[in-house]
Amino acid sequence: MLTSNTAFNAAKADFNDVYDQPDPREYFAAMKRVGYRLPENVMPSFLRVIEAVRRVRGGASLTILDVGCSYGINGALLNYELTLDDLYGCAEQREGDPGREPAEIDRKFFATRKTPFGHRVHGVDRAAFAIGYATSAGLIDQGAALDLEAAESPELPAGLADVDLIISTGCVGYVTVKTFARLLDANTGRLPWIATSALRTLDYSSFERFFGERGYVTSSSVRPVKQRAITSETERAQTLSNLAALGKDPAGFESEGDLYADCYVSMPAEEAGSVTREELFG
């Protein structure tokens, strides 16, 4: 029998055919069609978390690991004066040039939007082409194509093992605590803070329990944020079924035709008392 989240993943719109390409245009076009806004909508909370980590630990910039980074959207929003619409528009307007790689063309555009005092953003994802684009275009500093759910997954490269903050906007629900266990086992410095978003259709309690066992205290947002449009009756029905099983009311949220996500921040217990929920989520 399928678990509720496995059933939901099976019912979700499938973007696998465009998720891992050398050129992100088809992926960005697909995301624009379904009104995908999650990275932009969670970014205010992520920026508050970044400021909290800087205040608690000191330092002008952080090393951030984006789990499920794909084409580097979070890196773009963190370190460049860009919106999701800018990314979608850039992909639409770029003219084909058989003599140059898409990432090479886009890197020049992104360079004109780079903000000073940016953070070091690394990425890990199963999608090797997407990782390659994100690195070559300058949206992440270092990337590794790894499946951290797989038992035979190789070790995390050294540069990705000592980070201040782990973020994720899209993979929780596809990955389990196995991925975060591997990341924390590979960590060579202080425990990183962890900021994620997860669809409301997901029971996040297994992650909270795991993080608690690893010495974390988890706080969650007060109000969910929009991810994207629900794209089919099958997806809508499974969304409502999952929410009902979790005792969550879809009124005003999924009932209006969109998927919504909650934000979670897991802080090392010894540092959790240094920041309030309001400081994290506004």
Rank of each mutant, 00 (worst) to 15 (best):
T276K: 08
L78N: 05
S136A: 15
L65V: 03
L183M: 14
P98W: 12
T276F: 13
D86P: 08
P268H: 06
M267G: 00
L259R: 05
I140Q: 10
K114E: 15
A245G: 05
R94H: 00
A272V: 06
R100H: 10
A158V: 11
P116H: 07
Y88D: 01
D262P: 01
G138T: 01
E270Y: 08
P102W: 14
E279G: 09
Y71P: 10
D185P: 07
E51N: 09
L160V: 11
N187K: 02
R126Q: 09
D203V: 09
Y19E: 01
Y80L: 09
T234S: 09
S206A: 13
I105F: 02
A10R: 13
A272F: 01
D258L: 00
F281G: 10
N9Y: 07
T196Y: 01
F281I: 10
R33W: 04
T196R: 01
V217T: 14
R126L: 10
G273A: 10
F180A: 00
A30G: 07
A52F: 11
G35T: 02
I166A: 00
V225S: 09
T201E: 08
L87E: 05
S4R: 14
E254K: 08
L243A: 05
G72P: 14
T239N: 07
S241C: 10
P39G: 11
F117S: 12
A181H: 12
A130L: 09
E26C: 03
E235Y: 12
H122D: 06
Y80H: 15
C263S: 10
E26F: 01
V265A: 09
V67D: 05
A261Q: 10
Q227T: 14
T135A: 15
Y264R: 10
L202K: 03
A150H: 06
Y216C: 05
D85K: 15
G159F: 01
A128Y: 00
Q227R: 14
D141E: 14
D23F: 12
K248C: 00
D14P: 10
C69Y: 03
T135V: 15
A91R: 02
E51H: 03
D17N: 12
P224E: 11
Q142H: 12
G215N: 13
R55N: 06
R54S: 08
I166M: 11
D162A: 14
R54C: 08
Y204P: 04
S206F: 03
F117A: 13
L2Q: 15
F109V: 13
L2S: 08
G282D: 14
R120C: 08
T3S: 15
L78K: 00
V275N: 04
V49G: 13
E149T: 08
R223H: 06
V42N: 02
R228G: 02
Y264E: 01
